[in-house]
Amino acid sequence: MMNAREALTPDALALLQTVALTGSFASAARELGLVPSAVTYRIRQIEDAMDVLLFDRSSRQARLTEAGAELLREGGRLLQEIDAVANRVKRVASGWESQLTVAVDTVISCGTVMELAQAFLEVAPATRLRLRDESLSGTLEALVTGQADLAIGVAVEPGNFPGLQTASLGELNFVYVVAPHHPLAAVPDPVPDDVLLRHRAIAVADSVRQGVAVTRGLLAGQDVLTVPSMGAKLDAQLRGLGGGFVPEPMARPYVETGRLVVKVIARSVVRAPRMTYAWRSTPAPGRALQWWLAQLESKTTRQALLQRHARA
């Protein structure tokens, strides 16, 4: 019989992930092009080697046991590490990363990021570029956990993470806006908290996957509609579904055309957070990351990332 080390191969861990994602051995077999008995046999081999039950088979669904969930969490991390090692080896050989992942907060100008991506792919067509939408502390988490090589639009303090470097993008001013047909539009400024509390707030969900999610500008007990991105938040507020703070450059064209109204809030809140970008300095950046960092040294590029949003 195999021991645990022999059983826990990358292929075995990938098989566990597929079963957990598809919800059954049969579905996993179809996904992998195997017969169900082969999937069942491989899972049983892993369970026997570790002397634990990984899936609860009492129902038609393959549900992870607590031990299975723990193995899946750690196995996912190990697979990421294996991919990272392979990428580092390829980078050593060529100087260019085989893949570069950039985590971009949803307050950042999408058009400007796409222009940078287009220019990058012209000079580095062999590097696979991956862009990730993130929000709040999730933007930094993607970098810290090794899921991204560069994070643009970090609005939280990075803390003391070894090998992590940051540089300033600039300040991003936020304004509280509502649609002109929203009841708050007619309330005299400044709007007190007791009035805000009677109306729904629109909030962007923190994309952090581990740790404590960040919330900003919300009042205890206030009704909240949570959306996945700043673009979705802006859309919700244009429809009159609620109010909230959005980046002034994003709101500006809608304010100028009368589709949004800026309100002064009596409560003192931080309306111009300092935005940064961050990357890992160890191991030394490859040529792909160096290219992005060189673009971010331009003041014009940094301003465009914060300020240049699509017109209404």
Score class of each variant (00 low, 15 high):
L260I: 05
A186M: 12
S24Q: 01
P183M: 08
I265F: 08
L15I: 11
V212W: 12
E74F: 07
L64S: 07
R274Q: 11
F55N: 01
L34I: 01
A93P: 03
Q307A: 11
Q45D: 10
S94H: 14
L71N: 03
M114D: 02
R30F: 02
D11M: 07
T65L: 04
R216P: 08
E141K: 09
S135Y: 00
V264D: 07
V154Y: 03
P253G: 09
T139R: 04
E256T: 08
D51P: 01
N173A: 13
G138K: 06
V107W: 03
Q99G: 12
A49H: 11
R259A: 06
I152L: 02
R239A: 11
R259M: 01
Q99R: 15
A167D: 11
L140T: 08
Y41S: 12
A62Y: 01
M50K: 07
R60C: 11
M114E: 02
E47G: 02
Q118A: 14
S137V: 10
V89N: 11
D206Y: 05
N87C: 13
T257W: 08
L296V: 10
Q222E: 13
E31H: 09
E115G: 12
Q45E: 14
E115R: 11
R252T: 01
A119H: 04
V255E: 02
P162F: 08
V19A: 01
A304R: 00
A304D: 00
G76F: 11
R88T: 12
L289R: 11
G111W: 00
M114A: 06
F161M: 08
A288I: 09
R287W: 08
E74T: 10
A86L: 04
R63C: 07
G146D: 14
L219M: 07
L296T: 09
A84S: 15
R57F: 05
I82K: 10
D56M: 03
T9F: 04
A103G: 11
S27W: 02
D48E: 15
P162H: 06
V262W: 02
V270A: 15
A266I: 12
G240N: 04
M114C: 05
G159S: 07
Y254C: 01
V262C: 05
E248T: 06
V113F: 00
M50L: 15
A26E: 08
A310V: 12
T106E: 00
V102I: 14
R209N: 10
A126D: 14
F120G: 00
E70H: 05
F161P: 02
L34N: 02
V261N: 00
R73C: 02
R42H: 03
L78N: 09
L21Y: 10
T112P: 00
E157S: 12
G23S: 09
D189V: 05
L129D: 15
D193E: 15
M114S: 02
S109L: 05
P273S: 13
L219T: 07
C110P: 03
S37K: 13
Q165T: 11
V123Q: 08
S207L: 03
A148E: 07
S37F: 14
A284C: 10
S137Q: 09
T22R: 14
